[in-house]
Design a protein around this nucleic acid. Structure first.
Length: 208
DNA sequence: ATATCGATTATCT
DNA sequence: GATAATCGATATG
C-alpha cells in the first residue's frame, strides 16, 4: 500500500458534515509496540454543533464530552450500553461541539490481531465483516478504550492512534439517516462508501 | 428476517 | 433512584 500521510488540523476544522464525508477512504491507524493495525474508513456519521439534539454536545460541555469542545481532530471516546466503546473525532472550530462518529472500517493490516481483540476465530472470508463493521466492533478490534485513547490527537502520526491518507480514490458517497438514535432521526447525516461490503448493518449484506 | 436481552455509565429528577 | 443510551450477540420463525 502507498505511504500514509497524516491529516492536518485544517482538515478537521470544517463542518461535521464535510469532515464526515471527507473521512471516507481515509485510514485509521493503531500502532504501538505490540500492534500495527490499519483499516479504511467506509462509514461515518456527523453530529452537529448546533440544533442537533442527537449530538452528545447538545446539552453543553460536561466531563464526559469535553473533548468535543476542544481542538478539532482529537479522539472523543464514550462507553455505551454497558459493553461498547465508540470512537468519534472532534471537528469544527475549537469551542464548538461538532463531532464525527466512526461506524465501520474495511480491515487492511493486522487482521489476525483484530480477530484476537474481538475474540473471533476467522473461518470464512465473510468473517472479516465481523471485525470492524459497526462502531462497537471497530473500537474493540482496534483496542480503543476511553482510558487509553480519549483526547488522543488524531493528526499526530507519532501517537498510537491517528488517521492517514494514501491517495485511495474514495468513490461514490451515499448519504442516509443516522443509525441508532431517536432524536432528529430523519436527518441525512450518515455517509457511506457506496457498495462497500464492510458498511454496518444487514441490508447490504443480503444485496452483496 | 425479526425479536429480545445484557450490561454500565452519565445525566437528570 | 430512574432511565436512556451514536450497540452487538443470541435466540427464534
Amino acid at each position: 500500500m502507498l505511504a500514509l500521510k497524516s491529516l492536518d488540523r485544517e482538515f478537521f476544522a470544517r463542518t461535521p458534515q464535510r469532515v464526515a464525508r471527507e473521512l471516507l477512504g481515509k485510514v485509521l491507524v493503531r500502532h504501538s509496540k505490540a500492534e500495527f493495525l490499519t483499516g479504511r474508513i467506509v462509514e461515518t456519521e456527523a453530529y452537529l454543533a448546533e440544533n442537533d439534539p442527537a449530538a452528545h454536545s447538545a446539552a453543553g460541555k460536561t466531563a464526559r464530552n469535553s473533548v468535543l469542545f476542544g481542538p478539532p481532530g482529537h479522539a472523543y471516546i464514550y462507553f455505551i450500553y454497558g459493553s461498547h466503546y465508540c470512537l468519534n473525532t472532534s471537528c469544527g472550530r475549537e469551542g464548538t461541539g461538532g463531532g464525527v462518529l466512526f461506524r465501520a472500517l474495511e480491515p487492511l493490516q493486522g487482521i489476525e490481531r483484530m480477530a484476537r481483540n474481538r475474540g473471533i476465530v476467522l473461518a470464512g472470508a465473510g468473517d472479516l465483516r465481523k471485525l470492524t463493521s459497526g462502531p462497537g466492533r471497530l473500537a474493540e478490534a482496534f483496542g480503543i478504550t476511553r482510558a487509553r485513547d480519549n483526547d488522543c490527537d488524531l493528526t499526530r502520526d507519532s501517537l498510537s492512534l491517528w488517521i492517514g491518507e494514501d491517495g485511495f480514490p474514495s468513490g461514490p458517497v451515499v448519504v442516509t439517516p443516522r443509525i441508532g438514535i431517536t432524536k432528529a432521526a430523519e436527518r441525512p447525516l450518515r455517509f457511506v462508501l457506496g457498495g462497500n461490503p464492510f458498511v454496518s448493518g444487514r441490508k447490504l449484506q443480503a444485496v452483496g
